[in-house]
């Protein structure tokens, strides 16, 4: 006997390829392994501490925000973990004790506010990890002025920290800060392999490039954004009389164009749009570095450039939509 309950109905298609978000997030995590490892090798426990705090914060951010919105959490899709890790890798790894609550808060806000409150997964217009980074760097500066006693590392004040390896943020200036300060510049090979300054995302261009190539190979990101941005920065720097290779290899540029500017949710989906978006980022990065370096470098010209272009993505998409079959050529 056939009863109606024996039949399952629903709209077509009646099967599915079976690929889900977690597959892509796994690829992103894999692509981030070389950077994470070089980061931990160079900065030691400090880097690990930052990663743990940011990821924990991000996960908590999803749990709390979704509960607040009355939606189901879906930590299994890996998006919160990826956001937390991306954020962590762009932060200066320091075992300075005050970062623990601060960076946890950064991770938390990245997901809870900059993603969930600003539209939710897939609808937020600005890259949550970058928003978190900007928040933290502003927060750090604010602390420098408001509570300098927290910055002055005082062993007597926090004796338990003596055990941890401490990397002073300012002693190891980022390459770009060296330009501003007129310090000696690191060589290309140092930048490419291991440069002990800034954040894990800035230490090894090679590790970053490896990750980007993997993501392109896996079809998770398009070559258009990284290639146009890098080419744009290279040519514009050349035009402005700067060392183009140095501009490309230093700072967070490669990490930014490979992992932040390619974030699915906040980049254009059209092919032409990606080129425009990439070039826009390139122009902004070069502009920030050339003209207002002193002001911006501490916060990352790349981060701001990407966030500014994020704001135009939906318009870029509409303006550059491809021709639909059957419409006039």
């Amino acid at each position: 006997m056939q009863t109606e309950t024996d039949l399952v109905t629903g709209p077509a298609p009646h099967w599915h390829e079976g690929v889900s978000i977690i597959d892509a997030m796994q690829d992103v995590l894999l692509a981030l392994i070389p950077i994470t490892i070089t980061g931990i090798l160079i900065f030691g426990t400090g880097a690990l501490l930052v990663i743990i705090t940011c990821v924990t914060g991000a996960v908590l951010g999803e749990i709390v925000a979704r509960r607040f919105k009355g939606e189901q959490t879906n930590l299994g899709d890996g998006t919160a973990v990826v956001t937390g890790l991306l954020l962590a890798l762009t932060l200066p790894p320091t075992a300075w004790w005050a970062v623990v609550p601060l960076y946890t808060l950064g991770g938390f806000l990245s997901v809870a506010i900059f993603r969930e409150a600003m539209g939710g997964l897939g609808r937020n217009r600005f890259n949550p990890a970058l928003m978190g980074r900007v928040f933290l760097l502003f927060g750090r500066t604010t602390l420098v002025y408001l509570a300098p006693y927290l910055i002055d590392f005082n062993p007597a004040f926090t004796p338990w920290l003596e055990e941890l390896e401490v990397v002073d943020v300012m002693a190891k200036a980022t390459p770009l800060l060296r330009v501003v300060e007129g310090m000696e510049l690191p060589s290309y090979s140092t930048l490419l392999a291991i440069y002990e300054g800034g954040s894990p995302a800035e230490t090894s261009a090679l590790a970053v490039i490896l990750g980007i190539i993997y993501l392109i190979y896996r079809g998770r990101i398009s070559w258009r954004i990284p290639i146009t941005t890098v080419t744009g920065v290279f040519l514009l720097s050349l035009f402005l009389g700067q060392d183009p290779l140095f501009q490309v290899l230093s700072g967070g540029l490669l990490f930014g164009v490979g992992f932040m500017a390619t974030d699915w949710v906040t980049r254009p989906v059209t092919d032409t749009g990606k080129i425009i978006y990439g070039l826009g980022i390139a122009v902004l990065v070069v502009f920030f570095r050339q003209f207002i370096a002193e002001l911006w470098i501490g916060y990352g010209g790349v981060a701001f450039s990407i966030l500014i272009m994020n704001g135009f993505v939906r318009y870029i998409d509409k303006l550059t939509a491809r021709r639909v079959y059957g419409q006039k050529k």
């Binding site: 099967w15 599915h16 699915w264 949710v265």
Partner: peptide
Amino acid sequence: DSSLDVDDFRPCVRCER
């Protein structure tokens, strides 16, 4: 094999597939 649910699906993450 059949998996689409018109009432319960996840947000679009603009993966482009």
